[in-house]
Design a protein around this nucleic acid. Structure first.
Length: 280
DNA sequence: GGACAGGTGCGGT
DNA sequence: ACCGCACCTGTC
């Protein structure tokens, strides 16, 4: 495979490693110290960091320019978020190279159904096996399968591929997606779209927020997982029950909530590598 | 070898 | 509406 250089971009607010490893995407691989391969649907790109420049190699530069969110001014966002509080300044400074990717909605639905009560290594393993088994061939490997193909499969297949008890969630949601008008979700506000997404089997509040943030570009949501619960209890005011933490952060951060969540998640995974509920 | 994973569905109050 | 609990399985 000989991919052409499609474009370059300044690396100060585009850190490829941080963007890919902050948990928003599962289909990527480290090819070398400063070179990563990234898959989205049936597309593929490689991003290499050379000095203060990121070089992106792909056959579809238009797709990946959008995918990497290169039209958004992250310097302004980091500046605004840094001004909020000392902890946000630290988290934003640490994660300032993270960009919220424009990922495919269907791929996000299945990926985050699989992510529930799971670890990142295993999530990647399961998704890779699903693509290998059901994805269409591309010049770069296997594509992410369509909902139609998943719907035509059985729960037993996904159990075989290691999905565990999520096997039936994957199939049930795929069958609901057949003939479903996902574009209609764009007309809803985030709260209404979240409620609708939660009618899919395997999609609860946290997974719905991830789908909204990573698959629908809704910056005004705040996915709360074990790491963010720990962040809340460590750095923010006490007193909210777990089910209220997302709303608390949404009210605090507004339209920057999703990006703030990524900064805090990545920051906590870096500096809070202790068991949950243990204050570092 | 046990605890833990980027939680959710379910049944019981 | 709000608990508490079981849950596949790879990794640490």
């Amino acid at each position: 495979m000989n991919l052409p250089l499609a474009f370059t971009y300044d690396s100060e607010y585009f850190n490829v490693k941080d963007t890919l490893e902050c948990g928003q995407i599962f289909r990527y691989k480290r090819l070398a110290e400063d070179r990563y391969g990234v898959y989205s649907l049936d597309k593929y790109a490689e991003a290499a960091t050379v000095g203060d420049t990121v070089e992106v190699y792909t056959d579809d530069g238009e797709y990946f320019r959008r995918f990497f969110d290169l039209d958004t001014d992250y310097a302004a966002k980091v500046k605004r978020i840094s001004a909020l509080s000392p902890i946000m300044r630290r988290a934003a400074e640490y994660g300032k190279g993270i960009r919220i990717l424009h990922q495919d909605l269907t791929e996000m639905i299945f990926s985050f159904i699989i992510s529930a009560n799971n670890n990142i290594k295993r999530i990647q393993l399961i998704i890779d096996r699903i693509c290998d088994r059901l994805g269409a061939d591309t010049p770069y490997g296997k594509a992410f399968p369509t909902a139609d193909v998943i719907a035509a499969s059985s729960a037993e297949l996904f159990a075989e591929l290691g999905a565990g008890y999520r096997d039936k969630y994957i199939v049930a949601s795929a069958r609901k997606l057949v003939g479903y008008d996902l574009a209609s979700l764009d007309k809803l506000d985030s709260a209404a779209a979240r409620k609708e997404l939660m009618t899919f089997m395997g999609v609860g509040p946290k997974v719905a927020d991830c789908i909204l943030l990573f698959g629908m570009r809704r910056g005004d949501v705040f996915p709360v997982d074990t790491w963010l619960k720990k962040v809340y209890h460590t750095y923010f005011e006490q007193g909210h029950k777990d089910g209220e933490i997302s709303t608390f952060f949404c009210n605090l951060f507004g339209d920057d909530a999703g990006l703030c969540q990524q900064y805090l998640f990545y920051f906590q995974r870096k500096y809070g590598q202790t068991t949950p509920n243990t204050v570092q």
